[in-house]
């Protein structure tokens, strides 16, 4: 799809409305798989607390690591760019 858009086979204006609709409502398609919790509950009953904590902690970790790395590198890059602009 990205390729079609770049090659202008599909004009972005034509699909923007439909794609916006789906982007906002993707959660809808996750309903049945999340409802599965009611049957899989027994399997995870014993480890559910541990699993939830694990998910929460690693989620924060990944957000922090990715965000911090990107933020720091972008700042470094902009600083360097600012310097070279000043020299020239």
């Amino acid at each position: 799809m990205l390729l079609f858009l770049i090659l202008k086979v599909i004009k972005v204006e034509k699909i923007k409305q439909v794609s916006d609709f789906f982007t906002q409502n993707i959660a809808f398609f996750f309903i049945p798989s999340t409802v599965a919790l009611m049957v899989n509950y027994k399997v995870i009953e014993n480890s559910i607390a541990g699993a939830l904590v694990a998910i929460v902690l690693t989620n924060i970790l990944v957000f922090f690591v990715t965000g911090f790395t990107a933020e720091w590198l972008l700042r470094l890059k902009n600083k360097r760019k600012g310097k070279s602009d000043g020299n020239s």
Binding site: N59, V62, F63, A70, L74, R75
Partner: peptide, 19 residues
Amino acid sequence: FGVKNDIAKGLAIGTSSHV
């Protein structure tokens, strides 16, 4: 976490919590 840059925010969100 002081992630202010829009690019960094997007990367952090997509990498940690997908669609």
